[in-house]
Simulated assay, not measured.
Amino acid sequence: MSKLITETQRLIIREFNLDDVQAVYDFNADERVNRYTGDAGVVQSLADAERIIRDIWLTEYLQFGYARWAVVLKESNQVIGFCGFKNDYRINETDIGYRLSPEHWGKGYATEANKACIEYAKAKMDLDYIVGDVVEQNQASVNVLLKLGMKFNKRFDDLGFKIIRYDMYLKAKS
C-alpha cells in the first residue's frame, strides 16, 4: 500500500510503488509527454519504468521524504501521471513538476494536483521555497505554473532548451 499524500475532488495523490510500473511506462510512452522535459527516450520499456520507481522515487522518498507522486483518478483508480516535488541536486532547489498522459491534458488535472501538493507542503513539509522550470515553448505548462501562483524568476539555457524559471515562497519570508 502506498502512502496517501492528499486528495482533491477528482484526484488521489500518493507515493508510487512497484505495482505502478505499467502506468509509469504508459504515461511516458507518448513522445509528446517528454518533448520539453529532457527525458525523451528515458522510458522505453517496463524495466525502465521500474528502474525510475525503484531507483529514483522510492529512494528519494526515503532520502528526502518526498519525490514525484502518483496522480490517480478517483473515478477509475487509474494512475495518469505524476505531480509534486523533487530535490533537484543540479540546481540545489526543490522543483515542482508534473507529467500526465496526453488524453488527460486540458482538463485542469495538473493545476488541481499541484495546488494540492503546495497546500500539503505548506501544512506538512519543511519546504520554504520551490521553483518550476519550463521550456519557453511549452505554453500550457507556463499557464499551469502561473495558475499555481508562481512568479517569473529568470530565463536561461539548459540541455539545449530555453528555460523560464518561476518560483514561490511557501512560508512567509521573515
Results as ranks from 00 to 15, higher is better:
residue 131 V to G: 07
residue 59 T to Q: 14
residue 166 Y to A: 02
residue 117 C to N: 07
residue 88 D to L: 14
residue 67 A to H: 10
residue 96 I to C: 03
residue 160 G to T: 09
residue 112 E to N: 08
residue 68 R to V: 10
residue 101 S to I: 00
residue 18 L to W: 02
residue 136 E to P: 01
residue 28 N to A: 12
residue 142 V to F: 06
residue 147 K to W: 02
residue 98 Y to D: 02
residue 112 E to G: 08
residue 51 R to D: 12
residue 157 D to R: 10
residue 147 K to Y: 03
residue 121 A to T: 01
residue 59 T to N: 15
residue 99 R to L: 07
residue 116 A to N: 02
residue 55 D to C: 14
residue 10 R to T: 12
residue 90 R to P: 01
residue 122 K to R: 15
residue 67 A to E: 03
residue 75 E to W: 00
residue 109 Y to Q: 09
residue 113 A to R: 05
residue 71 V to R: 04
residue 85 F to E: 04
residue 86 K to I: 14
residue 51 R to M: 11
residue 36 Y to D: 07
residue 82 F to V: 04
residue 75 E to K: 15
residue 50 E to C: 01
residue 32 R to G: 01
residue 17 N to Y: 00
residue 73 L to W: 05
residue 158 D to C: 08
residue 54 R to A: 14
residue 43 V to M: 10
residue 29 A to R: 12
residue 122 K to V: 10
residue 17 N to W: 01
residue 81 G to W: 03
residue 95 D to L: 11
residue 23 A to W: 06
residue 152 F to V: 05
residue 47 A to C: 00
residue 121 A to Y: 03
residue 133 D to T: 11
residue 80 I to K: 04
residue 72 V to P: 04
residue 22 Q to R: 14
residue 87 N to Y: 10
residue 132 G to Q: 03
residue 27 F to D: 04
residue 15 E to I: 03
residue 131 V to I: 15
residue 107 K to D: 09
residue 104 H to W: 14
residue 65 G to R: 14
residue 41 G to T: 09
residue 144 V to I: 09
residue 149 G to I: 13
residue 111 T to G: 10
residue 95 D to M: 11
residue 137 Q to D: 15
residue 170 L to A: 09
residue 12 I to V: 15
residue 69 W to R: 04
residue 89 Y to V: 15
residue 156 F to G: 06
residue 114 N to Q: 08
residue 174 S to A: 13
residue 9 Q to Y: 10
residue 42 V to I: 14
residue 115 K to F: 01
residue 11 L to W: 05
residue 79 V to A: 08
residue 72 V to Y: 07
residue 109 Y to M: 05
residue 39 D to V: 00
residue 62 L to P: 00
residue 42 V to F: 13
residue 105 W to Y: 09
residue 89 Y to D: 12
residue 103 E to H: 11
residue 25 Y to N: 05
residue 59 T to V: 15
residue 41 G to M: 09
residue 155 R to V: 11
residue 69 W to P: 01
residue 68 R to D: 03
residue 169 Y to I: 00
residue 56 I to N: 11
residue 124 K to H: 15
residue 33 V to G: 05
residue 155 R to Y: 07
residue 88 D to N: 15
